[in-house]
Every structure is written in C-alpha cells, then in structure tokens.
Simulated scan of single mutants.
Amino acid sequence: MHRLNPLFCSILVLALASSGCDGTATYDVVAASGTVMLDNKPIEGVSVTLVPQRGIKGRGGYATSSSDGTFTLQSAPEVNGVVPGNYLVLFRKYAMPDGSPVPPGTSAADANLINQLPEIYSHPEKSPIYATIPATGPEGLSFQLSSRPGKR
C-alpha cells in the first residue's frame, strides 16, 4: 500500500483551498508573525504551515523560522499576511538523511529528506496545534514545541 507524504498532503490542501473559479481569487489579509520554540529554545529552519479550517476562504499561510525562531506568514509568494480565521498549524524541519542541513535548491523528493521534528507536529490528522488569526491581526503568535510531546 502506498502512503501519501504529509508534506504533499499539506501542499495539496493549500492548493485546493486557494483555487477560485477563475484561479485569481483574492482575499483581504492581515499581517501575522510569531515565534516557534523547541524545548524552550528558538529553532531555525522550521516550516510553519497554516491549514484553513471550515469556513476560511483563501490559501492558508506559510513561513520559515529564522535563527531567533521568528517568522512572518504569507499566503502566496507575493502576498504577506493571511486571511483572518481559524487554522490547523503544521511544523516541519527538514534535514538530509545524515542530519546535515539541506543545501539550497534541493528537492525533498530527490534528496529523501527527513523531518527532524516529532511526527505529531506535521501530521494533518494528529497535530494538536491550532491558531486563530483575528481580523485586526495577532499581537504575535507563539508556538512551544517539544522534542518529546506528551512527556514532562
């Protein structure tokens, strides 16, 4: 049996959510940024994906965290910000199979990249993390991830 890659599923969800009748639908967006931490430390290179929940129009959002864990969401390459509403949030941090950083321009499929974060954070059916983006824009999103979710 062939299993679908969670990254592929997330991209597919975002693509389907973004398509309008003529493919050019636009929605009002608000600026949204925040910080992602792993075990109370900022983490660089984390892919943050917002998957729209019921009733949200638009594409969702995505970003990559910088060295201090901060990120700024966008809903398309040329659109900073996201449509206000409720989102499922997914997180991934890819590395080469030997654990080394991913070279620029490397394709996930060709390089057999691995996700260094626990699967629960990247699985659309298991992620426990949701965010609400208010119409006025959030003060700043803060996500605290654990390398051992459910353990204290």
Score class of each variant (00 low, 15 high):
A95W: 09
M37C: 12
G45P: 12
S33K: 08
S100D: 15
I11W: 11
V30I: 10
G150F: 04
Y94N: 07
Q53S: 10
V46A: 07
Y27K: 04
L14P: 01
I11Q: 13
E125R: 05
Y130L: 05
F8C: 09
G23Q: 05
C21Y: 15
K151V: 13
A111G: 09
L7M: 12
A15T: 12
K57M: 13
A25F: 11
C9P: 07
D28V: 04
P104H: 09
G85C: 04
Y87S: 04
G137I: 07
L50R: 03
N115E: 05
V51C: 00
S67C: 01
S147L: 05
A76M: 01
L16H: 10
D110F: 04
S18I: 03
K41G: 07
H2A: 13
K41H: 12
Q116Y: 14
V79D: 00
M1H: 15
Y87G: 06
A76W: 04
Q53M: 08
V79Y: 03
L7E: 15
F8D: 15
S147D: 12
G20Y: 13
V30F: 06
N80G: 02
T35Q: 07
F8M: 10
S75D: 02
E139G: 13
T64W: 06
G23S: 13
H123S: 09
S65D: 01
S107Y: 02
T64V: 05
I133P: 08
N112D: 14
G55C: 09
R148K: 13
P149K: 03
Y62M: 05
S18K: 06
A63H: 01
S147H: 15
V79N: 00
R92Q: 14
K93R: 15
K126Y: 15
S107V: 05
G105V: 05
N112C: 13
A76K: 02
S146V: 08
I114N: 08
S127I: 02
D110C: 03
E78R: 08
V30Y: 11
N86A: 10
M37G: 15
S122Y: 02
S107P: 06
H2L: 11
C9K: 07
S65I: 00
S66T: 03
E119S: 15
G81I: 01
L4M: 13
C9L: 06
V36L: 03
L12R: 05
E44I: 07
R3P: 13
S67D: 02
F143I: 08
D39P: 12
T72R: 04
N5G: 11
L38K: 10
T106K: 09
A108N: 08
S19P: 09
S67N: 04
A76I: 01
L145G: 11
P149M: 06
I56C: 00
S33M: 05
P42C: 06
R54Y: 09
I129G: 04
L141P: 03
G45Y: 10
T64M: 03
G137N: 09
D22C: 08
D68P: 01
S66G: 00
I114Y: 04
Q74E: 06
E119D: 09
Y62Q: 02
L12G: 14
V89Y: 07
M96K: 12
L113G: 14
I129K: 06
G45W: 05
E119A: 04
P52G: 03
S107K: 12
T132Q: 11
T70E: 11
K151W: 15
G23P: 14
F91I: 00
